[in-house]
Design a protein around this nucleic acid. Sequence first.
DNA 1: AAGAGGAGCAACCGCTTCAAA
DNA 2: CTTTGAAGCGGTTGCTCCTCT
Length: 341
Amino acid sequence: MVRPPCCDKDGVKKGPWTPEEDLVLVSYVQEHGPGNWRAVPTRTGLMRCSKSCRLRWTNYLRPGIKRGNFTDQEEKLIVHLQALLGNRWAAIASYLPERTDNDIKNYWNTHLKRKLQGGGAGGDGDGGAAGDAVSPKPAAQRPASSSKGQWERRLQTDIDMARRALREALTSLDDVKPPHQPDAANAAAGGGGATTGAAASAGADSPAASSTSGASQCSPSSAGYVLTTENISRMLDGWARKKGGGGGRRAAGSGPATPGATESASGSSEASEVSYGGTALSAAAAPASAFEYETKPTVTAAAAADAGDETQLSAIESWLFADADGIESGSLLDAAMDYTF
DNA sequence: AAGAGGAGCAACCGCTTCAAA
DNA sequence: CTTTGAAGCGGTTGCTCCTCT
């Protein structure tokens, strides 16, 4: 009746991932591509549950993810989408391709929810402005869980509502940033990027495209490896600093290898070889073709970095306002998928 | 300077759904 | 058509760090 857990309790390691484990996992994915997670623990020797491997990859190791420093645009988008879609974080995350559902969920729970609750007058109320302006009826009533194909279809049915919500969001964003004024956009984005050293924008993949290729969610084909290396570099760098420097967060021996959330912008080219714990590791050992498995629309890190949030937003805006061009809602998903940034 | 409480983040758990046999 | 395995999602928990007293 009760399905046994995906992995046995005994012999399965839990807790924070170590850099070594991350490297093993990254190497495996580079070699075999994401997916077939069930086989990962056995084939890599990782004493981890397959689910844990998938989660680790999806949330931290996969290329193109941006961590921390949510921009104002992102924040508003999340608020509106949450009002519209409910706690369907994966669906929401599909509109913020650089963000993981877990990240968005955490951000919502730690920042936005409190912000909206506490400052009913201060901003968009959870049930307040966001809900009122966009959708009086949060879609949270829907079944909570939705796997890939399922939510994709559901998303497609929701796409009109989402579109309205996004339009509302973007309309409100116009107060912050006129749609086609790069300077203003840069200023807004700069709050996270230039000033705080957030990870360079890795470009926005297509909205709603995260489910098109199985496990892969963001997959620059050629740049992906670079980004992965950056991630590893950041991870190892941060870990080394934290561990060796003895000052950082999670300085204890069990400290997880958090891919540097805030220290990333400038040091990305250092990725070729890094050392931690006295051991030099070549992060570039794996073949660059590793991410050919991934099929999402190509986006290069450079282009994304140049484009930044402005481009992302413009693409979304274009998508939204394509409504006027008569794009059928049934094809919206495809239209959205066609975006390359 | 030390301690307590709060906040944020990473990871785990259980459930649901999909796909293959 | 039914069963079984695998993947994905959302909720929740635990750990660590930061800030305030």
